[in-house]
Nucleic acid binder design. Sequence first.
DNA 1: CTGAAAGCGCTAACAA
DNA 2: TTGTTAGCGCTTTCAG
Lengths: 355, 355
Amino acid sequence: MREMAEEKRIPTVFDIAREAGVSRGTVDRVIHHRGRFSEETAARVHEAIERLGYSANPNAALLASKKSYTLACLIPAFKEGEYWELIQQGLLAGAQEARRYNIEVRMFLYDQTDIGSFRTECAAVLEARPSGVILNAVFKDAVTEFAGRLDSAGIPYAFLDNKVDGLGNFLYIGIDPYRSGYLGAFLLTANQQVDSLVLIRLVRDKGRQGDPNEPRRRGFLDYIHEQLPACTIHTVFIDPNDPTGIIPTLEAFFREHPEVRHIAMTNSRIHLIAPFLEQHPEPRRIAVGFDDLERNLAALKAGQIEYLVTHHIHDQARLAIEIFSDYLVRKITPPRRNHYVHLDILHRLNLDDYS
Amino acid sequence: MREMAEEKRIPTVFDIAREAGVSRGTVDRVIHHRGRFSEETAARVHEAIERLGYSANPNAALLASKKSYTLACLIPAFKEGEYWELIQQGLLAGAQEARRYNIEVRMFLYDQTDIGSFRTECAAVLEARPSGVILNAVFKDAVTEFAGRLDSAGIPYAFLDNKVDGLGNFLYIGIDPYRSGYLGAFLLTANQQVDSLVLIRLVRDKGRQGDPNEPRRRGFLDYIHEQLPACTIHTVFIDPNDPTGIIPTLEAFFREHPEVRHIAMTNSRIHLIAPFLEQHPEPRRIAVGFDDLERNLAALKAGQIEYLVTHHIHDQARLAIEIFSDYLVRKITPPRRNHYVHLDILHRLNLDDYS
DNA sequence: CTGAAAGCGCTAACAA
DNA sequence: TTGTTAGCGCTTTCAG
């Protein structure tokens, strides 16, 4: 009679042990393949697990576990409102989540215009002896060298947002930059007669080693060459560190080329040309940019920009921590080595609830 | 000397108790405002928490907690590949996560063509005495009545995917259907000369009480009326339960109106017209639909559809469980009562990594 | 190869 | 109003 009143309890290790006629310690060993145990007991344990539908209580497991990890994030330093601030925030959100796995996330920020600072931070990461590293690829050669060090040290690493191909990373998470450029070109020109357009670039990219925007620009240009072979492509350079010089530069260009009505920038700074477009609403020009920085969104909302191609930058970074956590703690290898995230098309009409 | 070697440990309730000169039980009472305690000890405890930077170990808290909850989900039953299957999957993913909070999620599925079955399931939900309910709004009056019951019983509830306004729900999570229709109309007609278009509807919507697609259709039509007042709008009804009848119906329409090149469906079944478009590639027609059902994605990929307006249906459902969990367990009220999710624009060129 | 037992940090019932 | 204590379910020594 007593049994009838009993509630169906969720089975615990203890129940499994009893059913299999072994101790809790043995059950643990079988489940986690640690220590030694006979095939026969293992079979009995597995059978009991199956029969009772057992699954471990994660809270208890984590509480009792003595394992702890440290995850190093090696990313560019940034100013407020810049691209990498969004990444940093996503990483911190992921870090918050990861705490319950006894994972401590440490940030290592370097100056992306100074390869020396990158090398310094690489050394600091190595010294911290992390369980894993999340990094991006600015200085191609230095990154390759550092990756080699991590390989030797047996430290797993993942590229975030951009990558160098052919290295030992177990994961890349970010967009396919070529496709983003291709899509941007489509949005700029779809259903229109476009005889010429202007691509605006940043002067800093001129002297830079390994321009990170090259694949995206290539995607953009390939689309134009394929779909609009007769279209003339102009290029103008502006200096992000000299905001007052931007408007005169653009005015000069459009005075000379008044027929150009289509504008693109393949870096994340399309907002730099918003003041010009605001001051010169006539003739109407179509601008397409990339990445949802606050200022870009403002320009989109205000109507100076037509489309923004972007992705969930914050979520992508959080996801990187999550996937890495699962890899570390639960030994789950991600299904795809290249985890390309979805490209979002942002327009004034679907801007409101973004992020 | 020994102290110098000591690692910085993460502080526990015990540390707080020692610092504040009280017992662990008292610390617990102060933190959770349960039982009674003097203002003075409370102040000392808070001070110690602040000073040591204490935050509770969630694993230990959940393990020790005896509280448990049940969350009822009252949603339409579905066939494979239908819209509500995606929702169900998202809810189950959220349920998996919620298990660690001792939250059990229970599904109550009703036939959305049969108000009787809805009423039956409502009664079943009430009988289960859940801690909370997630539901959608099909039968407006019946939903309103049920909401009143939940209010009386003091059971919190949230609308998912669609809603009835003016009720006591603490949360709605889903899109703004009007805006989705508006956006769809923009995508169908942007940069083009459109003199006429056809809106394809389902015959089942004819007799239905409270057509759930009405707000979206209104958004669609408003855009056309505002931006293209001269555009003629045709309407054709097809029967989803008679697939073989669809092609002849469309053939008849386009024989009579060969000038119509733009097609929209404001429900989730745009894939129903894909076979027709495949068989009749000439003249080229532009079709825009909604929601990323497998079959819709296939038609988008194959080029029969130009754009799909959708949102992360799966994530939206998972999020509903997450927000409700926080509300229940951690008493966190969501910042906005209406949590509108972002509208995604899907095109052949950004389809690859979706979801 | 296996069992016993001591916690992990917190909650909640019971004493005082 | 406060202190004490027995667990929650699992991991991890340490003995055998």
